[in-house]
């Protein structure tokens, strides 16, 4: 009896949440409703992440030509179980404070590059985030032609970013030509009566040809379109000398990245109150079209 009531309530809230948050959106918005599951990792097999689905990016970015991974980050990514493993139904990324290959911290960054890449769809993951100053986890997508078409032209869709010293706030962004780095198109989502480091939350986008909708749990909090990019990043696009500034570059396959950075330009370094190790738990990653 209770369960039935609860479901009804849940549905009600979902609907009212949509109505509520859609007030400031274009009435003719396209809300994608994709429910055909095409990729999932439920992280049900203990050990290393499924090699058929995930690659490791290893090092401090130097080998990739971007020392500090382009953001002066402090960690050295490894594929050791100390930094990345599947355990008890979860993908566990762990950031540690330890001297390793010249870095003071270790962590992990895994991607689906060349293993799973898709244009459009619903990408979502259920995650419990870490916490503490200097901790910067993310669940994001990168265009699969960055080798030939260097960032930011290849496009970046940040489904979820979070800074460990703001445990009630996540943000979603897109980066492209003329709108990237500090001038990306981005929006924060703050949770009122909970935290992202104590409970699991679902972070997702629904991406269609001319729109990327951002969700936390069942709540839509941002809708990015070619028009909103032109509007939100107007100044930097106009200042840009690029011929393609402001272009919508999200019409090709992207791949998934999950990582936990330590330090870097955005979060700043950890402080004395930052507790190590820090763990980021991912219950599942699912993609629909």
């Amino acid at each position: 009896m209770n369960v039935i009531i609860k479901k009804n309530i849940t549905a009600l809230i979902l609907i009212s949440g949509l109505i509520f948050t859609s007030c400031d959106l274009d009435e003719t918005q396209e809300v994608a409703t994709l429910d055909n599951l095409v990729m999932q990792d439920e992280f049900d097999v203990d050990g290393a992440p499924n090699p058929g689905m995930w690659n490791y990016e290893i090092g401090d970015g130097t080998a990739q030509g971007i020392p500090g991974w382009g953001n002066n980050e402090l960690q050295y990514y490894t594929d050791r179980p100390e930094n990345v493993k599947v355990e008890n139904g979860m993908l566990v990324l762990t950031a540690r404070e330890e001297l390793f290959e010249g870095s003071s911290y270790t962590s992990a960054r895994i991607t689906t590059q060349n293993l799973f890449e898709q244009k459009y769809g619903r990408f979502e993951a259920r995650i419990r985030l870490p916490w503490g100053k200097g901790i910067w986890p993310a669940f994001w997508l990168l265009g699969n032609d960055c080798d030939q078409n260097p960032w930011p032209n290849c496009g970046e869709i940040d489904i979820m970013e979070y800074l460990g010293n703001s445990p009630t706030v996540v943000f979603g962004s897109v980066h492209g030509p003329g709108y990237n780095g500090g001038d990306s198109v981005s929006k924060e989502y703050g949770i009122e009566d909970g935290r992202f480091d104590t409970d699991f939350h679902v972070f997702g986008i629904e991406w269609s040809p001319n729109r990327i909708n951002y969700y936390v749990d069942d709540e839509l909090y941002q809708s990015i379109t070619p028009e909103s990019i032109a509007e939100d990043a107007q100044e930097s696009i106009e200042d840009s000398e690029l011929s393609n500034a402001g272009d919508w570059v999200f019409n090709r396959p992207f791949y998934i990245i999950i990582n936990m950075a330590v330090g870097g330009d955005l979060p700043g370094p950890p402080n004395a109150q930052t507790v190590f190790p820090q763990t980021m738990l991912v219950d599942y990653v699912r993609v629909y079209n």
């Binding site: 609860k6 979902l14 909970g194 939350h201 749990d217």
Partner: peptide, 12 residues
């Protein structure tokens, strides 16, 4: 009272 909780705090 249980319903109230759900209404107030959402579905999680």
């Amino acid at each position: 009272a249980g319903l109230l909780l759900v209404i107030t705090y959402g579905c999680d």
